[in-house]
């Protein structure tokens, strides 16, 4: 069974770097690319066809919610997990409405992050 393909989207280098760090040592998860904004993310989705996108909410040029909507419209097979520094139900609901599989805070523990990733993947598997 080949590992799940992940795409990390964040405008901050530090965030992409530390997210990747947290996913290290999980053989079933493979980071196949990094994007710095929504446009970039959509482009890489078309190219790389990842299974899951870890999407930052606030980004310049195209934000995470807009990008999620675009991805789910064009490539509905790809799951999206939103990451944010903001603890807000509004973002959660908005994320759900554009088709995101989950919403998790950036300061969540490694364990929580991995659970959220696996949950998002299982949802898409069921769907």
């Amino acid at each position: 069974m080949s590992p799940t393909r992940l795409l990390i989207v964040d405008d901050h280098d530090l965030m992409r770097e530390s997210t990747q760090l947290m996913l290290e040592g999980e053989p079933d998860l493979e980071v196949v690319g990094e994007a710095v904004n929504g446009h970039h993310a959509l482009e890489l989705c078309r190219q790389l066809r990842p299974d899951l996108v870890l999407m930052d909410v606030r980004m310049p040029e195209m934000d995470g919610l807009t990008a999620t909507r675009a991805i789910k419209e064009e490539l509905p097979g790809i799951s999206v997990l939103l990451l944010s520094v903001y603890e807000s139900d509004d973002y959660r609901w908005e994320g759900a409405s554009v088709g995101a599989a989950g919403y998790i805070l950036k300061d969540a523990s490694r364990q929580q992050l991995l659970e959220a990733v696996r949950k998002a993947l299982s949802q898409s598997g069921e769907g």
Binding site: L21, M22, D107
Partner: peptide, 20 residues
């Protein structure tokens, strides 16, 4: 949001990964 929180979150993630 752009500087302080990103830095602190990154530091937290490093430390947590180290702890894990």
């Amino acid at each position: 949001h752009d500087s302080l929180i990103q830095l602190v979150i990154a530091a937290q993630r490093y430390i947590q990964t180290f702890a894990d």
